[in-house]
Amino acid sequence: MSALAYALVAFVLATAIATALFRDVLSTIVVFGAYSLGMAILYTYLLAPDVAMTEAAIGAGVTTVLLLLTIARTTRPSPDQLFERLDVPAVVAVGAFLLVAGTQVLPEMWAVGDPTAPVWSNAEVSQYYIQNTYADTHAQNAVTAVLAAYRGFDTFGEAVVVFAAGVAVLLVLKREVFV
């Protein structure tokens, strides 16, 4: 783990905590945009540039616009103080979850980036796609090859989900067209 990874983890953590605690909704949305951007850079560090680009465009871009549109159409309560008061029972519940996850689950997981971890070294799954992507699809980007060739039908299903969501939004807002 390098200094860059430490800095990214610290940035993501700080923006996430600020997102949870800011009382003003507009500040929360802006900090959440920064969080998404930090996350995108962390994905790039973890060798996933395609995911990072999608996260930057959709997480930091579209989500922020949707959230801003919502508070523009509804209300933004004027805050009397900067931070929310901590909800003690919720902190206890979440702390219990963290304690169990940190002491029981985390030590059982493979180290990050371990080349012997089955997710990566499995000869029938991950290694098959890495070895045969070019022979099977003639695409050099393995992510594109899986998304559009091996799992093309899943991507079609994803488009159906987006269509269904669009119809649901129109129905809920009782409109016939967007905008």
Binding site: L46, L47, A48, P49, D50, V112, G113, D114, P115, A117, V119, W120, I130, T133, Y134, Q140, N141, A142, V143
Partner: peptide, 12 residues
């Protein structure tokens, strides 16, 4: 989970 130490992005 997909990350591998010392590797590169999934371009073959």
């Amino acid at each position: 989970m997909a990350y591998v130490e010392g590797g590169s992005a999934p371009i073959v």
